[in-house]
């Protein structure tokens, strides 16, 4: 009973928050509603018994990803209204058909999947974090290491892309000025001299 109440409450809250994110024309409303929706999604993970996943959802999504978006929005002009595009009706039609096919597949899926065997069954005597650790560091060790390398590459790419020339505004300079500066003296900008 309580599970049903919690499910419907958080489902309604999540749908409302993500609808605000998608429909609003203010970037700040969008990011705030997005962060709230992420926290509400972690409630589903706690209901489903995936405690570790819920904690990761709060820490990584609302802690790191949303903070990164908020940091990135400092660079952009967020006060003006976001302009919407006029969509091609053919694309909307194709995507609508795809979404309908997906709903049919979801309704059919439990019928097909009745004979699925659990590869890594959940043992009730150990906690969720312990079970996740045992499976992650035995069966999924190689994907785990590959994901670590991928995160390292993404971190270096982020530093290289965003960290350079923080003290210069390339928007206020002309195109030829930027090219001349890069050709003449590449180290000039990084030291921040004039």
């Amino acid at each position: 009973m309580f599970e049903a109440i919690a499910f419907y409450l958080f489902a309604a809250l999540t749908i409302v928050m993500f609808t605000i994110t998608v429909m609003t024309s203010q970037a700040l409303y969008a990011i705030t509603a997005m962060a709230a929706g992420m926290i509400f999604i972690s409630a589903f993970f706690f209901i489903l018994g995936a405690d570790f996943l819920g904690a990761i959802q709060i820490i990584v999504y609302t802690g790191a990803v949303m903070a990164l978006y908020a940091f990135g929005m400092m660079f952009f002009d967020t006060t003006r209204d976001v302009v919407e595009k006029r969509t091609n009706p053919r694309i909307v039609f194709v995507l609508g058909v795809l979404a309908a096919v997906m709903v049919v597949a979801i309704v059919v899926a439990p019928i097909v999947s009745n004979n699925i065997q659990a590869l890594y069954p959940i043992h009730p005597e150990v906690g969720n974090s312990q079970a996740v650790g045992m499976v992650l560091f035995t069966k999924y060790l190689v994907p785990f290491e590959v994901a670590a390398v991928m995160l390292l590459v993404a971190m270096i790419a982020g530093i290289v892309l965003a960290g350079k020339k923080m003290d210069k505004s390339l928007t206020l300079m002309a195109e030829e000025e930027i090219e001349m500066m890069q050709m003449n003296n590449p180290a000039h900008l990084e030291r921040g001299e004039h």
Binding site: V65, A147, V153, A157, I159, A162
Partner: peptide
Amino acid sequence: AIAASEVAVGLG
């Protein structure tokens, strides 16, 4: 993990 790296590279 993929979403986190996508945000880092995309925002850069």
